[in-house]
Design a protein around this nucleic acid. Structure first.
Lengths: 191, 191
DNA sequence: CGCGACGTTGATTTGCCTCAACGATTGTGG
DNA sequence: CCACAATCGTTGAGGCAAATCAACGTCGCG
């Protein structure tokens, strides 16, 4: 279980045995249940989470009480309220489990120490963040310039199995439309 | 001129004299004119640009030929098509100068070498990218959940002087609305 | 001066939302 | 094991926000 994060890291950099060992020890395994909060505003996000099994959603609760999904994280993805985690400000974004599952957690002070001691890890996270920026830009573009129909189809391509795992209203939220409208879009584009 | 990038980097990490010297030599000064492309699809983005003076815009040209502004970069900001720059894929995003100005450029192979030789630079870019992710998330949220009126006001707060420097239709594009509609929003919210 | 780029304004259309009602499914307690 | 409620997706009617299309005024510039 805990090796999965090493596998992920070693896709981008090559840690030594000793470094791998240190990384392994820095994480703790945590079981999560459906609907459980991993970050709940206004608590400060204490940990970064690496999903071993299950599925998380990050969302914002706007003034009307509407949930706005910002990102999903399934197996082998990282997730937290990055802003709160980095700055120790109050969190603004919820992170919630959509399924029972298992995550690896690491506290900020522990991660900071790791980053100081293991230069390769800085490279790993730099690459991780670079990729995140690229992905977010793609997402922004889809929201700005795709019609909902195309946007929905792109979503299905990008997250092939997610649609069967998470409720439709989360997907609607992610796409930036109401559940009712997504329902109409689906019935329309399946024929 | 060229020290401005050092000033920026030293806000987050402390380079030694020798390191600073190496960094300085890695950049080249480039004058840019209004409407000049710094990245033009499908050319691969060869350089990362640091704006010393002037203002750049990154945008996507969608299937209808509509320009979709993704980001602006004024003084002391970085800009390129990051995806193309990192992967050497064909670029998808234009980077264009909105004003006459001056940028510092660094080629990918040169930057890669710097990153290998100067661990602190990895830290700097990791932090830079972290902040970019946080900012992009904020932007995504504004598009998803703000009415155009608020969104416009937030934009003005965030980029106080940019409005006077760039044409309104770029701002409309950035906000995700038509120039006509932005015009109405402005006349409406100024009274 | 005259042209092109830019911003504004008006009339009409449309994509998406809101509100409400209705099945289908799930889960829960008696 | 069944009754009941809660959750979720679908469908319909009506309304609003923003797009589209088009015309016009203004400014800067060759």
């Amino acid at each position: 279980m805990i090796e999965s994060v090493l596998t992920e890291i070693n896709k981008h950099v090559s840690l030594s045995e000793a470094e791998a060992e240190r990384v392994t020890q820095a994480f703790k395994v945590k079981k999560v249940r459906r609907n459980q909060f991993l970050v709940q505003p206004p608590d400060v996000a204490q940990q970064e989470h690496f999903v071993v099994k299950g599925c998380l959603v990050e969302y914002y609760l706007d003034d009307n009480g509407t949930q706005r999904a910002l990102a999903f994280a399934a197996e082998n993805s990282w997730m937290t309220d990055l802003q709160s985690f980095l700055t120790t400000e109050d969190s603004k974004y919820y992170v919630e489990a959509l399924e029972d599952g298992e995550v690896l957690t690491i506290r900020k002070d522990v991660l900071d120490k790791l980053l100081l001691d293991i230069p390769l890890l800085n490279i790993y996270f730099r690459i991780l963040y670079q990729n995140a920026i690229v992905a977010q830009k793609e997402r922004l573009l889809n929201i700005l310039s795709s019609k909902t129909d195309e946007h929905y189809l792109k979503f299905r391509q990008k997250y092939p199995h997610l649609e069967n795992r998470v409720p439709q209203y989360w997907i609607a939220s992610y796409l930036g439309v109401t559940p009712e409208f997504l329902s109409r879009v689906k019935s329309r584009s399946l024929r």
